[in-house]
């Protein structure tokens, strides 16, 4: 009886030690060892910023047909701004997505003996292999996770003016004609006293609700001011 009690005690102690080690290991994996970014990314934790930067670098490395990289395009900063614009529930889901991708290497490791390391700790080539595994998986949910992550990173990449200019897809300057509605609505957040036009100004400019026809846009049209190249 006594020896059985001793065995149970040893088992409990070993189990506790293993549990503690596992918890510490998981805790370290989730929270520790992230590099300090040059500047904090507003809207993202350090861990999330590392994951987004790693994914942006893997999906959009520097060079090639469109020169800016995902990091050059400021994808993590964009991602922080976008997250702040989301409703709280949706924002939480996106954060869960980031955590899932970061740690899913435990289940779907990258090639190599250390393929279980978290996503952002993998080298650029391995990150690409991990993402390709998600993209081509026979499991729909894995493909869905990939599509969601890539959608976010791609939107951030294309938010950069240099990327759009490189593809000649940057928005053009359009001067909106004044319509009857412009005498009704103020800009969002402003009171009605901030409506830009009076009704009599609108009527002078043309029939109600009928903006004048304009010439079709083409590549010769000037770029939107926000998308023009800055000259130092």
């Amino acid at each position: 009886m006594r020896s059985l009690g001793y065995v149970a005690e040893v088992q409990i102690t070993v189990g506790f030690a293993l549990g503690l080690a596992l918890s510490l290991g998981l805790g370290w994996r989730v929270f520790a060892g992230y590099p300090r970014p040059a500047a904090p990314v507003k809207g993202l934790s350090r861990r999330e910023a590392a994951l987004v930067a790693a994914a942006a670098e893997a999906l959009f490395p520097r060079g090639g047909a469109v020169p800016p990289s995902g990091l050059d395009a400021g994808v993590p900063a964009w991602c922080g701004r976008w997250l702040e614009a989301l409703p709280a529930g949706t924002r939480l889901l996106v954060r869960c997505l980031f955590a899932l991708v970061e740690h899913a290497t435990l289940l779907f490791p990258a090639p190599g003996w250390d393929g279980f390391r978290r996503f952002s700790a993998q080298g650029p080539e391995r990150r690409g292999q991990v993402l390709e595994g998600w993209r081509t998986s026979r499991w729909f949910l894995r493909r869905l996770v990939f599509t969601s992550l890539r959608a976010i990173v791609t939107q951030g990449y294309f938010a950069d003016a240099a990327v759009l200019r490189a593809l000649r897809l940057a928005p053009l300057a359009i001067v909106p004609p004044v319509t009857a509605a412009d005498a009704l609505y103020p800009p969002i957040g402003q009171p009605r006293s901030r409506v830009r036009f009076r009704a009599d100004q609108v009527e002078v400019r043309g029939p109600l609700d009928r903006p004048p026809a304009g010439a079709p846009l083409d590549l010769a049209s000037p770029l939107h001011p926000d998308y023009r190249e800055r000259v130092a």
Binding site: P61, A65, G128, L131, R135, R150, A151, F158, L167
Partner: peptide, 24 residues
């Protein structure tokens, strides 16, 4: 918006960028 269309392009890395360059 180009970003929405680009979401569906296959691949990653420089191969993906080659495909982005085909959008025009």
């Amino acid at each position: 918006p180009p970003a929405v269309l680009a979401v569906r392009l296959p691949g990653a890395g420089l191969a993906l960028k080659e495909r982005l360059a085909e959008i025009p």
